[in-house]
Design a protein around this nucleic acid. Structure first.
Lengths: 186, 186
DNA sequence: TCATTTTTATACCAATCGGTATTTTAAGTC
DNA sequence: GACTTAAAATACCGATTGGTATAAAAATGA
C-alpha cells in the first residue's frame, strides 16, 4: 500500500487546493487505497496531515532556511527571497505551510503544534539572518531585529499567498520589492 | 421574523468567526427563526451572505472610503489608516470583507461577484487617494500610482487579518507603519 | 363565525464528513 | 493441501451540511 506514495498524493492535494477542502475520502480515492489502510498507517486525519507537513518541511521549507543561512549579505539574500517568493515554480499554487497556518483553527492538535513549531523556527531564522546583517553594519536606524524579522516573514507569506490566488508574479515581485526596500534604504 | 435582526445576527457570526464555519442551521438557531423562514427571505445561503456583505459594506467599509476621501494630505491619511487597521475596536476580530475574500472559492456566485465589486472599488479609492498625493508632490520617485494602490490595499488587509488572529495591536501598528513608510521616505 | 390565505414549525431529504466493524481476500507457514 | 495470520475491500456508523415538503398555527377578510 506504500505510505510514501500516499503522502505524496496527499501533499500535492493539500498543496494545490486548500487543506480544508480535501477530504480523507478523496485522498484514499486518489491514492488508490482503502480508508482502513490509511487509518492503520496514519491513525487519523490529524496524523496524516502532520506527516504531510513533516514531509513538506524537509522537502520544500528547508530551501528557505538554506537561503537564509547562506551568509551572502543582506541585499543578496533579500533578492534571493524575492526570487523564491515571486518566481519559484513550486510556489505557483502557494505554500502548504502558509495555507495550514491561515486555517489553523481547522487543524488537529498534532498538526497545529507542528505548524507553530515551524513558525517559531522560521521567525528565529529570519532574526538570525537580520542580526548578522546588523552586525555587518547593513541596517536602518530605529528598527529592532525582532520587529524586522516579523515584518520580513509576513511579507514573504503575503507574497506567496498572493501567488496562490493567481496574482501576476511580476506584480507580486514589484510589491515585495517595495516592501523589503525598507531594509536597504535609510 | 424581522429580516434586519437576522442580518445583524448573521453578520456578527460571520464576522466574529470565519464565514465558512458558520452554517445556516446555526444562524437560524441564533436568530430564533426557522429555516424555511430564512430561505423565504433570502432564497439561499448565497443570498443571505450577499445581503450580509451589503450591510457590512454600508455600515463598516464606508468608513474606510471616508478616510480615503478626506483630502487631509498623504501623511495624515496614512496615519488615519494605520489607526483604523491597528486599533479600531471594530477590527478586533478582523474584517468580514477580507475574510470572505480570503475564502472566495467557498462563496456562492452572488456573494463572490459582490466581493470582487468591492475589491475593485477599494483599489480605485486607494488609487484616487494616491493620485491626489502625487499631484500635491508628495510622492517617492519611481513608483506608479497603480502599484502603490495595490501595495497599500494589501498592507491594510494584512494588518487587519493579523488582528483577527489575535496579534498584539502594537506589533501590528509597528509593522504597518514600517510598510507604509515607503510612501513618506525618499 | 367561518373560510381563506399566509406564516411558521417540524420533520425530512440526499450528500458528505471523519472514523470503524465486519467480511473477504491474500500471503505465509508447516 | 490445510491452517494461521495479516491485509484489504465493502459496508456501515452517527453527525452535519444546504435545502424542502408537509403539517400545524395564526392572521386576515367577509
Amino acid at each position: 500500500m506504500n505510505a510514501e506514495n500516499v503522502l505524496d498524493v496527499a501533499m500535492s492535494a493539500y498543496w494545490q487546493n486548500d487543506p480544508a477542502d480535501v477530504s480523507v475520502n478523496a485522498i484514499c480515492q486518489m491514492a488508490g487505497i482503502s480508508k482502513p489502510s490509511l487509518y492503520r498507517a496514519f491513525g487519523s486525519e490529524d496524523g496524516l496531515s502532520r506527516a504531510v507537513l513533516d514531509r513538506y518541511a524537509e522537502q520544500v521549507l528547508s530551501d528557505i532556511f538554506v537561503i537564509l543561512q547562506g551568509g551572502t549579505g543582506l541585499h543578496q539574500t533579500l533578492d534571493a527571497l524575492i526570487d523564491f517568493a515571486s518566481d519559484d515554480p513550486r510556489m505557483e499554487t502557494g505554500c502548504l505551510f502558509y495555507k495550514m497556518r491561515a486555517g489553523k483553527h481547522r487543524l488537529g492538535p498534532d498538526t497545529l503544534s507542528r505548524v507553530e513549531e515551524i513558525d517559531a523556527a522560521a521567525r528565529a531564522a529570519y532574526a538570525a539572518f537580520l542580526q548578522a546583517a546588523r552586525d555587518a553594519g547593513e541596517w536602518p536606524d530605529g528598527l529592532s531585529v525582532e520587529a524586522g524579522a516579523r515584518y520580513l516573514g509576513e511579507q514573504i507569506a503575503l507574497a506567496i499567498t498572493q501567488r496562490a490566488s493567481g496574482e501576476d508574479p511580476a506584480r507580486i515581485r514589484e510589491m515585495l520589492t517595495l516592501a523589503l526596500s525598507v531594509f536597504t534604504r535609510r
